[in-house]
Design a protein around this nucleic acid. Structure first.
Ligand SMILES: [Mn+2]
Length: 184
DNA sequence: AGCTTGCCGGGTAAGTTCCGGCGCT
DNA sequence: AGCGCCGGAACTTACCCGGCAAGCT
């Protein structure tokens, strides 16, 4: 099983989510979604990894690319994938605690590709969920990469941010790297 | 005087959950 | 009757973007 692909998809899932949907007559759906304004990143970084995981699971579920009103969406409907991703996500704090860097670098890259500053000038990472940012800071520390925060950046919506100081940008690029077309 | 980084407003690129369908047991 | 894949899309806001200026060297 390709843990690196799972780790990247979990990080990238910050731009989407896994949903256990309940419908009428007891019907249900286990849907995992990644979204992006440009389809390129979804096709290059998300789709192949997702297909790889489906193959490993022996699943016949379809990977669907959908053009929405405000963004593209790549989607899979599979209880197996849903369970794999949600269970794997729960294990991330343990991986950080043990500094499993070969896996963590993929999680961090996926996370940054999703939620990171892509101006090329600064390295920042936003999220409402302070705990995920705290985890990111801890994970970065495993690589010797310093990060400021998290602190409250958008007081209107309660969005927090961390920032990798300029002295550590090079190290982030070398150790973690980028796949998003705006940065890669 | 150039670089760094906390702060903050703009608005769109995200996220989330509906709908109707079909298929399997 | 009860559940799980499929295709679509409406709906709200959480991100990203980017400028400003105080602080440092
Ligand atoms: Mn994003």
């Amino acid at each position: 099983m390709n843990n690196c692909d799972i780790a990247y998809l979990l990080g990238a899932l910050a731009d989407g989510g896994c949903y256990c949907l309940k419908y009428r007559d007891g019907r249900s759906e286990y849907r995992c979604v990644w979204t992006q304004a440009s389809p390129v990143w979804l096709l290059i970084s998300v789709k192949p990894r997702l297909e790889n995981i489906l193959e490993n699971l022996g699943s016949n579920s379809k990977v669907k690319m959908l053009k929405g009103n405000t963004r593209y969406e790549i989607r899979v409907s599979s209880k197996l994938v849903f369970q794999l991703l949600t269970q794997s996500k729960a294990k991330i704090p343990k991986l950080i605690e043990k500094c499993e860097n070969e896996i963590l670098r993929h999680w961090l890259r996926g996370l940054y590709d999703a939620e990171g500053d892509k101006s090329g000038k600064r390295l920042r990472l936003w999220n409402k969920d302070r705990t995920i940012l705290t985890l990111a800071v801890q994970a970065l520390k495993c690589f010797g990469i310093e990060a400021y925060g998290p602190y409250l950046d958008d007081k209107r919506h309660g969005v927090h941010v961390i920032e990798i100081p300029s002295k550590h940008r090079r190290k982030f690029r070398d150790e973690i790297g980028f796949e998003h077309p705006k940065l890669a």
